[in-house]
Design a protein around this nucleic acid. Structure first.
Lengths: 124, 124
DNA sequence: CAGCATCCCAACCGATACTG
DNA sequence: CAGTATCGGTTGGGATGCTG
């Protein structure tokens, strides 16, 4: 049993948190949770994402085994993205964290207000 | 009831994920989970963190109400950092995600190997 | 001891243009 | 349709030096 939390022990957890915490991954995973979508459908569904970031984020999710990419060799090409069982199972702890955020969001926002307030006060 | 996940609905969750998913926050929160530590103790405990990043990350955690900063006006000064009840309660869903990562880490690593393998194969 | 200020490099990300 | 390539602005983060 290790007595404290090390970079080694935390790094894999942090990597997953960083992936899901990046700008677009969460949105993609959650929207794919409703069912498979093709590239253009994702782009329409997720407001404001660029083609570049959609591609890059999907590649990252695919690389980690969260998303399955399926190409239908039609003309024009059709590519469908779906959550893998691994990606789907990730939704559970992520939803738990989402629940925690919803329950504590006002406390966080209050803390931010207080923090800014004290900074102003200290500056006077 | 909204039919799909929007930027608006995901943003607060993503913000918390991004904070905890950044390079150092998780390490700080987890180590403070064992009890309060002062600045220099944190820096010794967390291998490789720079003074600058320790300060910045602590400020961020303090701003969101996860960490309480207490200054003892001695000479030389002593500053102690501790988790707030809010910060402590965050450990629960984060640990759940940590548990998920431990259970699925090998699957993730396999996926990465496969992904790289297929890229090499495709390049041949 | 516990920081803040500065410099600097690397990664992230958006916009745009081009392609099988 | 589903990408890739390139450019440029913004942010993240390490190294160093200075201070109450």
């Amino acid at each position: 049993m290790e007595p404290r939390y090390t970079e080694r022990s935390c790094a894999p957890v942090r990597e997953v948190l960083a992936r899901v915490g990046d700008k677009w991954s969460l949105l993609i995973v959650m929207n794919l949770g409703e069912g498979p979508l093709r590239f253009s459908e994702l782009q329409r569904t997720i407001d404001g994402i660029s083609q570049r970031m959609l591609t890059l984020t999907l590649r990252g999710l695919e690389r980690d085994g969260f998303v399955q990419r399926t190409v239908y060799p039609t003309n024009p090409p059709k590519v469908e993205y779906a959550l893998t069982p691994l990606g789907d199972s990730l939704r559970c702890p992520v939803n738990a964290l989402g629940e925690w955020v919803r329950e504590n969001l006002s406390a966080i926002q209050d803390a931010r207000r207080d923090f800014e307030g004290e900074r102003v006060e200290a500056a006077e």
